[in-house]
Amino acid sequence: MSELTAKRSAVTAARLALFLVFRIGNERYALQAVEVAEVLPRLPLKPIARAPEWVAGVFAYRGAVVPVIDLSALTFGQPAQARTSTRLVLVHYRPDEATPTQLLGLILEQATDTVRCNPADFQPYGLDNRQAPYLGPVRKDAQGLLQWVRVADLLDEQVRALLFPAQPLDLLKEPS
């Protein structure tokens, strides 16, 4: 009987996924942990001239330059507050199967908790929000609603071209 219980527990655990929970203002959001590469403290960033206000800048990480967006500024037009719990979260960004995975930095407030739950518990919230396609379904728990942020849908085509140009600049080429 204990072997059967162990198998059922393993199946139940397999259905559960880990999510990193953060806040924008008073609202709770979550990223699926498999999309998170690393959680870092907030670091100094180099601004990108003439980029949208929610593009926080870039920083060097293990030999690569990583673009960073402020999810609070993207979502509600207000930059993330500088708190001790504000983190720079590196995610695996891949908008589609044809594009290689790249690192993208997200500035997230109060990104200090995780929750393990069944992804099927998240349900549509009844609004077709074309301005924020990355805001996915919601899940109700004891603390209220938790909304899933889909990393693949964070950037539209124009911003993706700005942050991840298909043709990198040729620095050795003579200017015309």
Rank of each mutant, 00 (worst) to 15 (best):
A6P: 03
A6C: 02
A6F: 05
R8S: 11
S9H: 11
V11M: 05
T12G: 03
A13S: 13
R15Q: 13
R15D: 07
L18H: 06
F19E: 01
F22E: 06
G25A: 07
G25F: 07
N26R: 00
N26L: 01
N26I: 02
E27A: 09
Y29I: 07
V34E: 11
E35K: 08
A37S: 10
A37I: 01
E38Q: 05
P47D: 04
I48A: 04
I48S: 06
R50A: 11
R50T: 10
A51C: 02
A51R: 00
P52S: 05
P52I: 07
W54Y: 15
V55G: 09
V55W: 07
A56W: 01
A56V: 03
G57Y: 05
V58R: 05
A60Y: 05
G63H: 03
A64T: 10
V65W: 03
P67R: 00
P67W: 07
I69S: 01
L74C: 06
L74E: 07
G77M: 09
G77S: 11
P79T: 09
P79L: 11
A80T: 09
A82C: 05
A82F: 08
T84W: 04
T84D: 14
S85D: 15
R87N: 13
L88W: 09
L88G: 05
L88R: 05
L88S: 06
V89R: 00
Y93K: 04
Y93G: 03
P95N: 06
D96K: 05
D96G: 09
A98Y: 11
P100I: 05
T101I: 13
Q102C: 07
L103Y: 07
G105T: 06
I107C: 03
E109C: 02
Q110M: 04
T112K: 00
D113N: 10
D113F: 01
T114H: 13
T114D: 00
N118I: 13
N118W: 10
A120P: 00
Q123H: 02
P124K: 02
Y125K: 00
Y125L: 03
D128F: 14
Q131I: 07
A132M: 15
P133Q: 09
Y134C: 10
L135N: 00
G136Y: 02
K140M: 15
D141P: 13
A142L: 13
G144S: 12
L146K: 09
V151G: 04
V151W: 05
D153E: 15
D153A: 14
D153C: 13
D156E: 14
D156G: 08
V159R: 02
F164E: 14
Q167H: 12
Q167S: 12
L169Q: 09
D170C: 00
E174S: 12
P175W: 09
P175E: 09
S176K: 02
S176H: 01
S176Y: 02
